[in-house]
Design a protein around this nucleic acid. Sequence first.
DNA 1: GGTACAAAGTGAACAGTGTTCACTTAATGA
DNA 2: TCATTAAGTGAACACTGTTCACTTTGTACC
Lengths: 234, 234
Amino acid sequence: MDSDYPLEGSPADRRRQKVRESILAAAERVFACEGENGLSIRRLAEEIDYSPSAIYKYFGSKEELLEELKEAFFERLLVAVDRVQKSGRSFLDCSAGCLKAYVETATARPHHYAAAFSSIPAQDEQAPRTRTWEDFMNSQKGRAFHVLIDMVQQGKANGTFDPALDPIIAAKSVWASCHGLALLLIHLPAFETVQPDGISTSREASVDFHIQTILRGLRAPAAPTPSSICGTGT
Amino acid sequence: MDSDYPLEGSPADRRRQKVRESILAAAERVFACEGENGLSIRRLAEEIDYSPSAIYKYFGSKEELLEELKEAFFERLLVAVDRVQKSGRSFLDCSAGCLKAYVETATARPHHYAAAFSSIPAQDEQAPRTRTWEDFMNSQKGRAFHVLIDMVQQGKANGTFDPALDPIIAAKSVWASCHGLALLLIHLPAFETVQPDGISTSREASVDFHIQTILRGLRAPAAPTPSSICGTGT
DNA sequence: GGTACAAAGTGAACAGTGTTCACTTAATGA
DNA sequence: TCATTAAGTGAACACTGTTCACTTTGTACC
């Protein structure tokens, strides 16, 4: 979105953009190392040799600044998924690759990913109930979610997945599973290590198993044509 | 653990215990409504008509106080799981029931559940690597995790699950899936609502589908006995 | 060039946070 | 009754996000 080559806008605009980006870069740096607690406005100001109040000329609040960092996760994710999808693999390989890309993109920047899902909405606040679908689908989150819906629909069409699947419900389920794995890897150091004896399974084996299990759960129940009777949820 | 009937210890001890519990009760109350941000030591002190510094006679730090609230989730979970397991259902029904209990226990107190998985360990800090297994397994988290391991092993033994499963890896996978669903329900109000048109699927249907998909992913690959396959929840 | 105006940047201050510590008050055991 | 210990307090410290009157800087126009 933001151009890399500074050839547009007035000199003042370009300068402003530069400072803005230096703030974000500093925030990125500190946040990656020390998380939300280590990232204070004063610390940030010190890092870029400005006064704390200067930052408020660029971002309305700390929350707003963080929002920008959070959005970046879904941008990176969409890029990674795109790369997988263009690699010309088979459907199942491609699907597994996308899910793996999700987990890896998430765990590569633990603090960013955790922060992206950190806000808990107040229970009574349910006013913006109407036309949430379009709003959601136009956000980065929504676009990433749509990749999953497409995946399910494609799998149904080519006979890999159960034709009775509701694409949205199934996509939600897949998302939840990946989300959970990413977060457990991030939050629970024991999760990787935990193993009764020295024989600790590699992280990658766990991730691969998880993804294969997710996909197996969506598979078509039996042979699609002649003797396909025993299917459960048809 | 903490006795309800105040018949042990000296009067002073009992008094102390009472104050301690009133602090925890107030914390519980405030935390449930307003989350970690709304819970300050001063607010807590005001709530129980003590001075802020008094609280430090009972808890070493705010962190320590919160730790106690977080542990409570796993206690509630173990109680709920125990109830399901004693209900005498079939293996698959019981398993599904336990997973559902997990999601429901988690979403019933969103702030508590989210907080229980909120800390992100520093990347370099990997000193306590040795004998983590026993430590972990003796914690409440570990005991809850063990329920899942047992579930997988039982499923392998009775032919429901793939006999090739590694119980620990499979249990991790199941945990991750439930964890992810619970957190998405907590953090993303859109997750429940999201649906292209007014036809919004109920939350329960999503949860049930997710759990069935998890269990389906662990199923034995082919028919274990001649004609005993077609029923879903035996 | 000089000038008016807006933007960028600053320092001090406010209200809030977790935490500490010297202190007073209350309860206990000898 | 008195000494010892625990419980409880108020003021302070170092920090936080945020605001606001202020100065400096840059830009556009005459």
